[in-house]
Amino acid sequence: MDYVIDLVIIGLSVGMVYALVALGISLIFSGLDIVHFAHGEIYMLGAFIGLMIFQKLALPYVPALLLAIVVTGLIGVLIERLFYRRLTRAGGGYTVAGMGMIISGFGMSIVLQNIAFLIWGAKPLPFPVPFGMPVEVGNLTLPMSYVWIVSAGLLIMVGLHLLLRRTMLGLAMRAVAHNKDIAYLSGINVPAMISLTFGVGCALGAAAGVLIGPINYVQVQMGLGVLIKAFAAAVVGGFGSLPGAVLGGLLVGVVESLGAGFISGTYKDVYAFILLVLVLMVKPSGILGVEARMKA
């Protein structure tokens, strides 16, 4: 039984990382109508930036995490301004013009990987954070790194929820996600909101990268695996739905962990997709899937 609980806890913490990346992807999809295929690289970039701040600036882990979130968010805003805006202006989403968006996302992912390679090299770097001794909860022993991931992830999600539901800025972001014309006519600076939405999406990816860093190595190739899992998570939960992204992420993490523990670790990457296929067979719109019209 303890073994099952251990697996679930590992699954939840890895799932939290998937959930954060999936949240970013869903947020960007709902706001910009683009599927952002370079999001794995944003996650990688965030992890490297966090590591650099942690080592070169010798800041403690938490300030390094926060600073990496902000810096990567700003890089996201820059990427949107310089590259994606020209394409979204020509149309987006599922139109023919949206295809250009998808291709340029792939292009961006290659560019970012190569930039990271030139700066940090191909060797995986350790992210040595002294988290301290594992905590004892009942007869369970929880490594601090997992406790960190889950609690920081939850805090970030609560923060995002409050931003979107309780502030005028969040209301404006939701308005832009739902209908850009009406948002414009309400006096909202739509292009600025789109940049902000993209930046927040990238910040979420960076948070995931910095959180996973201490239990994995930080390396140039780390984005691809996570991107695919996060997409699976977003689709399982219902693409474009933010609660769906969280639920999907946690489910993918737990299923993967249980599968690896009980069936075989060799096929670890397959379980997420078995889950994906099963969910799509029963409910093609995903568990919390919403009509596109209701996404605001």
Partner: peptide, 27 residues
């Protein structure tokens, strides 16, 4: 100068008051 579009387009996932407040976003 404000336009009210055709087709009664409100934000369905928001409350009436949130919809109205959005109209004063610039204020």
């Amino acid at each position: 100068l404000v336009q009210v579009t055709q087709g009664k387009e409100a934000f369905p996932g928001m409350t009436v008051q949130e919809n109205l407040r959005l109209g004063a976003y610039a204020v």
